[in-house]
């Protein structure tokens, strides 16, 4: 039961990682690339780490096992808070340096 759930979580997480990476390569400008990475990486890391924490509980519900699972979830929560903040910081620095956003008509002058 736990194993099946863990496999589903990890596979979904890796799928979102893949879309984030393809978006990083395909999108036309810097701001759109931030859209792909800021969202895809957050959910991908959250799902993969949750699946790994669930799988580790297969070793029995003793105190060290639960502590290590909590540590893995700790990483997930930290990434959940830190990744959008990093996205925000990079976007702001791009805006202040004057990187022009791409639009349908081409780059604005």
């Amino acid at each position: 039961m736990l194993t099946t759930l863990a496999i589903i979580f990890i596979a979904t997480g890796v799928f979102f990682f893949t879309t984030a990476t393809i978006g990083l390569i395909r999108f036309p400008d810097f701001y759109c690339r931030m859209q792909a990475t800021g969202k895809g990486d957050t959910l991908g890391a959250l799902l993969s780490l949750a699946g790994l924490a669930l799988y580790y509980l297969n070793n029995g519900f003793s105190l060290p096992t639960i502590l290590i699972s909590i540590k893995v979830m700790f990483i997930a929560i930290f990434i959940f808070i830190a990744n959008p903040t990093a996205t925000h910081a990079i976007t702001k620095s791009g805006l202040e340096c004057g990187v022009k956003p791409w639009t349908k008509e081409g780059i604005q002058k």
Binding site: L24, M34, T37, D41, G44, A86, I90
Partner: peptide, 8 residues
């Protein structure tokens, strides 16, 4: 951005 994604 690329380095940040690789780190995650």
């Amino acid at each position: 951005i690329s380095i940040s994604v690789i780190g995650t």
